[in-house]
Design a protein around this nucleic acid. Structure first.
Lengths: 224, 224
DNA sequence: CGGTAAGCTTACTGATTGGTAAGGTTACGG
DNA sequence: CCGTAACCTTACCAATCAGTAAGCTTACCG
């Protein structure tokens, strides 16, 4: 009967319900992605994330170990979602590498449009941070890059245009493609209302057609 | 004659010479770029920068105002260098947009290869930070983007292939190009010994040739 | 109806570090 | 030779957070 006993949760408008760990973890990560995207890793405080998640800080530490652990969890979950979106789209688009690439790119742009915060977290929070985090980001990017490089390689050999381009070149094209897609997310933000498929199509036209022509010997040369 | 008077600078191996403000500022910025590139903005401490610059912390604050001011100074100087390198190369390459673009890209890759720290600072320290800094980074990128978009536009109209591609498309291509170049800096790191001109040439072939073909109506279409 | 464990909290500490106050010293013009 | 301003220092403050200790409360199970 102490005057203020139980005030902790008794008075708060909605008496916070107890929630099983797994569910709570996802809630925390949901909030954390938003906050990290908005403020950036360092400016984001665990206190704020805890409060927005409707719990107290020690819970975050109990479940996610540390701020870095929390960020890592965000990273892993969102990276997994993005990579899956790409892979599933590509896989579901038949056998032709060109079409698979196109489908993957479309899925990518759609994902970014829909999950802006996820993309921000994955995109511009890479350096700056600890080894483990940098590694995780690099790994996600590497996965996408490998996927794309594979499609490019298949596209090259499929087209019967021989092996004038080797693995190194497929890698080069993959880097260029992934980088272009990265950057086009900015363009997308400035040109709203563009369908992801439209963006993917333009990109395919720019890159793929050029690559095919190079394979056919129609190279561009300075002074040429 | 107090026993330890003057110990501050008397005992240090090399009695630190006095240096005029302008020169000292550049020294500080030199060091800061290295440290920011190595540690990232937040992990870098002003103390460390001061020490490596061979002076004490208050000097940094006297000359550069704040940590943010220091970073901003780094950013501005390095951005100016990079943009200049691109512009001068492009300007010195005659009138043809293709050649100017090629020269600009070559200069870009050469710059990144030579000034790795500058590039790291410019590249992956953008978000996370204050409004002013984000603005400065965005501005630098915008400058490059505008330059490239201009070249693309010129290239389109020069080729006489009409105006099937408008300003929006030039912007699209510019974003893709700049993003591809960004990302190819990673490729460059993993494939050392590649000449900047070689990288630029491959990129031109991928993108420019494709763009030209699209202008000629050789579009790629899914299922096509 | 206990009792035990999962869920949750308040209230702290410890360290790091951006930033500053106060004052010493050397160069240099008059 | 002297004063003044530019150059530079030591020593400190204050705030912000990541992370923790200690313990309360509710759900559920036997």
């Amino acid at each position: 009967m102490t005057g203020t006993s139980g005030a902790a949760q008794g008075r708060t408008a909605a008496r916070r319900k107890r929630v099983p760990r797994q569910e709570r973890e996802q809630q925390i990560i949901d909030v954390a992605v938003r906050v990290f995207a908005k403020r950036g890793y360092h400016a984001a405080s665990v206190d704020e994330i805890a409060e927005l998640a409707g719990i107290s800080k020690p819970m975050v530490y109990l479940y996610l170990d540390s701020k870095e652990g929390l960020f890592l969890a965000c990273l892993r979950r969102e990276a997994e979602r993005l990579v899956s979106a790409f892979q599933e789209a590509a896989r579901g688009a038949g056998a032709a590498p060109e079409l698979r690439l196109y489908a993957g790119l479309s899925a990518f742009f759609a994902f970014v449009a829909e999950h802006r915060d996820s993309w921000v977290v994955l995109h511009r929070q890479a350096s700056e941070l600890s080894e483990a985090i940098a590694t995780a980001v690099a790994e996600a990017r590497r996965a996408v890059m490998a996927e794309v490089a594979g499609l490019v390689r298949d596209g090259i050999s499929d087209s019967g245009r021989g092996s004038r381009l080797g693995a190194e070149d497929a890698d080069f094209v993959a880097h260029a493609l992934v980088g272009a897609a990265d950057s086009l997310t900015d363009w997308m933000e400035r040109n709203p209302g563009q369908a992801p498929e439209g963006i993917a199509l333009r990109l395919m036209n720019m890159v793929w057609v050029g690559m095919r022509d190079v394979l056919d010997g129609k190279a561009w040369l300075p002074e040429g």
